[in-house]
């Protein structure tokens, strides 16, 4: 048993302090979630209301291959986004965590700076950059790289650019925390033992920063799979992600039961994916983990 430095009067405090948060979560998270679950078994009234007759038909409707295709496409977008965020974010987080301590808050602030503007406004800004006579095309034409403007906006690439841009900070922050915790002496020791660059990365740095990598990937993957503004505005609504489907069912068709069923299927898929990912990540943990 580790020694308890605090008097018992204090150690009992945390339990009490959790009550407001628990109440908040149960009232504003669990109750609405239960409602959505209940609605997913109801059916749509003629004028878009909810008819409370139990039916599994919303879920049966989702067995149509079309919805599997939407889910698959969303997962593909989210996976590509997560991978790109990792490739871009890891070196960035590493450099920030290894820069002089007094610079770090400023560098992190710069990473967070885009959050100070509404996401919708920033997405519109991307439209100005990517469109036909946009800054990027004008720049490329002025340099003579291309003769005619490139089709950048309203393409799948534009969607990925928008998603990576939007969620990169969610990757950088947990990675920064993980890299900052990484003891530089361990990396030095690896060099001293004649490890190659690749071995240092794969056997020392990556295993030791794994909690940050797992956290960052989850934080990027989940919001990207459910995004709907980016595919609409930057993708020209030519295709649907699962977020668009949910938004469409709730707000356009006013078919809340079907929208709720889609939401629950998405939640189930994401949760399964996260649990599997978490398990596979913790199984391969190096011996140094949890020292």
């Amino acid at each position: 048993m580790p020694p308890r430095p605090l008097p018992s009067r204090f150690s009992s405090l945390p339990g009490w302090l959790a009550v407001p948060g628990l109440l908040w979560m149960s009232v504003f998270f669990l109750v609405p979630l239960g409602l959505v679950f209940a609605i997913s078994f109801a059916s749509r009234g003629t004028y878009g209301g909810i008819v409370w007759e139990f039916t599994p038909s919303n879920y049966l409707d989702l067995l149509h291959p079309l919805y599997g295709k939407i889910l698959g496409q969303s997962m593909w977008y989210a996976t590509v986004t997560t991978a790109l965020c990792f490739v871009l974010g890891f070196p960035l987080a590493y450099v920030i965590a290894r820069s002089p301590v007094r610079w770090q808050p400023l560098l992190l602030l710069l990473v967070m700076l885009p959050f100070w503007t509404n996401f919708l406004v920033r997405t519109y800004a991307w439209m100005i950059l990517l469109r036909h006579d946009g800054l990027i095309n004008r720049f490329l034409m002025a340099l003579g790289v291309v003769d005619a403007p490139l089709e950048l906006l309203y393409t799948p690439a534009a969607v990925v650019i928008g998603l990576v841009y939007g969620y990169l900070p969610f990757m950088v922050l947990p990675l920064y925390v993980a890299v900052e915790r990484l003891d530089p002496l361990l990396v030095e020791a690896a060099w001293d033992l004649y490890a190659s660059r690749w071995a240092v990365l794969t056997h020392v740095i990556l295993p030791l920063t794994k909690p940050g990598i797992v956290g960052g990937c989850i934080l990027v993957f989940i919001p990207s799979i459910g995004s709907f503004i980016t595919p609409d505005l930057l993708g020209g609504a030519r295709s649907m992600m699962i977020g668009n489907l949910i938004q469409h069912e709730y707000l356009v068709v006013r078919d809340w039961p079907l929208g709720s069923a889609v939401s629950f299927v998405l939640m189930a898929v994401v949760m399964t994916a996260v649990v599997l990912y978490y398990r596979s990540a913790s199984r391969t943990d190096g011996p140094l983990e949890g020292r």
């Binding site: 079309l66 649907m240 068709v253 078919d255």
Partner: peptide
């Protein structure tokens, strides 16, 4: 019939 439109629209988008 809105579900028919809805399904057809989703198929178009996909």
């Amino acid at each position: 019939a809105i579900r028919l439109y809805d399904r057809a629209w989703t198929e178009l988008k996909m």
